[in-house]
Design a protein around this nucleic acid. Sequence first.
DNA 1: GTGCAAAATATCGTATACAATTTAGCCTTC
DNA 2: GAAGGCTAAATTGTATACGATATTTTGCAC
Lengths: 237, 237
Amino acid sequence: MKPTATALQTAEDPADTGTQQIRDAIRDAIVERRLSPGTKLSESDVGNLFNVSRTLARAALQALSYEGLVSVEKNRGAFVAYPSPDEARQIFAARRLVEPGILREAAARVTPSQIQHLKQLLLEEGRLMGERGQTARRAEIKASGDFHLTLATISGNAIMQRFMDELVARSSLVIALYGQSTISSCGHSEHGDILAAIERSDLDEACRLMLHHIAHIEADLDLRERKSVGLKEAFEP
Amino acid sequence: MKPTATALQTAEDPADTGTQQIRDAIRDAIVERRLSPGTKLSESDVGNLFNVSRTLARAALQALSYEGLVSVEKNRGAFVAYPSPDEARQIFAARRLVEPGILREAAARVTPSQIQHLKQLLLEEGRLMGERGQTARRAEIKASGDFHLTLATISGNAIMQRFMDELVARSSLVIALYGQSTISSCGHSEHGDILAAIERSDLDEACRLMLHHIAHIEADLDLRERKSVGLKEAFEP
DNA sequence: GTGCAAAATATCGTATACAATTTAGCCTTC
DNA sequence: GAAGGCTAAATTGTATACGATATTTTGCAC
């Protein structure tokens, strides 16, 4: 199955120059699950989709491999990353390690207007949860990650922000692969609880809630190998 | 000033294929301070040095830019990164945020043979401190970072390890730019203290020492803007 | 019809070529 | 003598070309 035009059609209309646009478009497609793990991303196909040469397509795919969203195998090509259960555990271990610290830093620097912005995000997230349809589902996934990313932004550390970008994106992949519950962005209310704790400057509680929140997401995963499910197992439940 | 052959001559002899070798060679050169911040890295020059085309040279430089060791400016080229004081602060803030957690994880999983390996590292580091000469200095810089990187390896989380790789490498750049004391890898004994605390399973103390250690390195920095020192300031101290 | 070998096809790896942009030198001008 | 602008050289941005490797298909034997 090759990536179809419909799968990547976002953000492709205006004067898009450079590999950055391509990288971002593909990343969005992966994070929003329009591209499933394991999908082959041929350099030629990507190039054609965005009307650029293989050179730029290749550069974009290379960039995505540095973020762990795409895995390139020598002489075989690039594929949407298919994180192993162990990788998945490491991703969430990294988040448990990092997010409390980011939260503390963010809480120390947060301004009233930023609190307002966070509330806005939660409102939007809640609204999307009520809606039906693919589009709403994708927007909801993004909104859920945005809460964590916004905290990283508020923390004021660009390096940690970039790191969180990577972790959130890869988390989305993991959930797509191993998530069980139909509700993708479980624990919307948990975001609200965390924000409330921040507002009353109860940092320890906020961190506790954050760890609980991450554990909650992780608990919804069924971390077992799922290699090439086209075998007999499919018929023997 | 262009990168001379002597500055990059390391690891260029065998059947080196792909951009990885180039990337690693340049990274080593930056981390060991054979290349100073701000040095221009022309694609053609890099390509010629390693006897490959601009294509591969460009890919290597691109990769290094993702690690923050090289900054590429559109239509102007690639330069060895010149971290701003603010960036420097963020790098060390990130280390303070992350290293205690890594340390805890590592301490929980460390095996006797790994402890032995760490001791070996410290011994080597101490030996290098006694020696004279550029070569020993470079090896010492690398050894100092290796202690932190080995802890990350022991922690068993590949993601955190890669992150620490980046942080340690960028720290080296920051120290090259803003470090004051002649002793580059200050606090060798502090590494020993941390290891000792790990051995007697005193995690809280180990973390305390780690934070102290990072603070100690940071205290040796003079974080003031140093833009293009070819101006009048050079004559008005 | 099945299995293997070999050709054909597709895709990647790397180099080269050309266009676009920046930089440097030089001349003119005030 | 300094400032401005024009041309030429150098450097980067992007596309194309060609050889190498993997994959698929074909054809033949069994």
